[in-house]
Design a binder for these strands. Structure first.
Lengths: 224, 224, 224, 224
DNA sequence: TATGAATGAGCATTCATTCAT
DNA sequence: AATGAATGAATGCTCATTCAT
């Protein structure tokens, strides 16, 4: 039943960056962003609930009904903003990518002043800082073979941001080289995050330190 | 996708791994394979089919009916060997762990003779060698938060095997240290596998080499 | 698609035909059409949109939202004029009957001068002349067994008008006889319309001519 | 969730014509025909229930749940045999067409011995003889713009069968001419059926007789 | 013992209608 | 008065699991 979507009365009154900057082309449709306060709060609550439920149950096992209920919203409301489950997942993934990129951009401005080891430590600290969101994002990515596109975009954005950090640290680093290093480092960042999710692991701290150490060696070696 | 359970005797999800313990039983001629042999072949076919379907669709989207069909087996037969979907998933995970551990035990016997770099390369080559099985295993682990126990066991077995490899290389390495390093290295192995799954990535090879390089540096540094 | 009704004052589905009774109201200039004039235009647009959407999708599949959207009207406005979907359907049906009756009244004034064959041709040409409206009307009638009342009224009005045409042609025809003939002829008119809706039918033209011929024979025979 | 469909063990034991010969290409999939008694009875009950509910409510307003309930079957059972609502509708339509064609084939064998008037009467009696089925079939055809293909097939089969009747009556009639006449006559048959559905119409009988009379004139005229 | 038809709770999604703004 | 976001019952359909044969 075709759902039409207006560009809706873009009033520039209090129009700062919306709580969640969901960009261009998700799965099929775009989440409809509310123009007024109530909707804003509701969308935030829905996204938070979705994040929690996806993280807890995984994409398939999560039900739209539970997400709505946990946000204290009627199911129709959830569908008003996110016309399908897939769109909701997309919005969440995009939100997560936005947050990560923001952290990396911040790191970019501080990179020049950091030692290789400190830079490694800072990078590997990025992913663990958004626990629930990451768990949700990973649940989405891994459970949905049809999500590969989003997954690819997310990775591409992160790699680009990491490469930018590296070049801020060492402006003479060739772009190609920075890109390849970013790919390597992103995997190590994921590893660190995974360890952060396993808190009762005996050797957890030491292992995380090991990963940071390896990353430090890798960066130092590359910049030498 | 919560689904109620009709009077099912709901066995703990952790037992029943029929795939792993069936011993080798010779047969006389051919026409009517003794049921032991027949069963072995059927279980193997079912597990292979399950692996493929889980890898393709993820745990929830995979249906028992499709798995049975792809194995050329009637659904009743599938349930004869694997009384629930969860048991089937468990069996798959255990089978995967068995295969990985076997590879690591093999490596353990060769470790002493390898340079740190060669050892790193050998380790990071383990996970990528079982593509479909790994994809299936990841689909199971990531889509099912209630599978955390299995996940933990799998990781524990792998870490132990990796630690054994390290101590085969350097018998004086303290057990604690080896254990921590194993944790670190397992993350890097996962990273390498992940890159292996993204074959059209421009910097893929270089990045994988970077990961091997970092692991080599890490091992050399630790053994120094 | 049973749908419950929230506290609605559930008016009989047979009243409320706002489209048909709005008299002609002149306006002064242009910029701000007096609301009477505005309302007339809006109602016309809504009915046209409804007609198109009902014809395309059928009664149930048509949504009030799409109808409003296609008329360029807000949904609230649609409900201002037509308090329920059923009322909208009624209005459409009534409008269609009005249009048909007008055509038949016109024919009535010309009937005396026509030969039986010409009269048959003229009658069978009435229904095909309002394609979209007819499609919409049929969609409404056929999809809604609870619309039987409307359906009956529509038929009754048409039969009366057809009988009037017959008696204009042959004033001595007994009323009873004219009524029965009208029933017969209305069925043949429907048949002709149905053929008109199937334009890529090989024998379409010949068949339509056949229907006209049969109707001509029937009329001539009756008036003899 | 792809539903695979076996050609299932075509045992030729008691394999007479299945209760409902659902032929080649319906909407998307084919109804799965049961091989044994119980299923046979259940399918018949489901089709009867579907026929009644579609006739009463129309296609959209009919719910699968009600159809199953009225057949005394659980919803899952309904879906076992008819994987979608559309397939169920198709099966019904096909069943209806089969029944009508059978009646016409019977008429074909008697046609030569009938007068034009008697033939007309026999033809116009065909449709009214399957009241509920016809109501259901019309509800399906009229409410579903996407059913046009089935609709066309049904009409084509009927027209062919009618043409065969005409040529049985008058073997010298050119095929083309018979085809065109069949189109015309089918419309008159529909008209007669429609009148049969309106039993409390004062002039009903006379009007139906009028239709038969017109058809008789038409046939006699054509065969002259 | 082996088979696969049967079961029914649960899921994603829709849309007529209301009413706060 | 005019608007369109909010609401939630109802729908078509799925599939793990059972059990009669």
């Amino acid at each position: 039943m075709k759902r039409f979507m207006r560009m809706s009365s873009q009033k520039s009154t209090t129009d700062a960056t919306p709580a969640t900057a969901v960009p261009i082309a998700p799965s099929t449709a775009a989440p409809k962003m509310p123009s007024r306060e109530r909707g804003r709060a509701r969308v935030a609550a829905l996204l938070a609930a979705a994040s929690a439920v996806f993280a807890e149950k995984g994409y398939d096992a999560a039900t739209m009904t539970e997400i709505a209920a946990r946000a204290g919203a009627p199911i129709g409301s959830l569908y008003q903003f996110f016309p399908t489950k897939a769109v909701l997942a997309d919005a969440l993934l995009t939100q997560y990518a936005d947050a990560l990129v923001a952290l990396l951009i911040d790191l970019e401005s501080r990179a020049a002043a950091l030692s290789p080891d400190a830079l490694a430590a800072a990078l590997l600290a990025v992913l663990p800082s958004l626990r629930v969101e990451r768990a949700a994002a990973f649940a989405l990515i891994d459970a949905r073979p049809d999500m590969v596109a989003q997954q690819g975009q997310l990775r591409a954005r992160l790699r680009q941001a990491i490469a930018a950090v590296l070049r801020a640290k060492s402006p003479t680093l060739p772009a190609e080289r920075a890109a390849a290093m970013a790919v390597t480092l992103l995997q190590m960042m994921k590893g660190a995050a995974a360890l952060g999710d396993e808190p009762d692991l005996a050797q957890g701290h030491e292992a995380q330190a090991g990963l940071v150490h390896a990353a430090g060696l890798f960066i130092a070696d590359a910049l030498a």
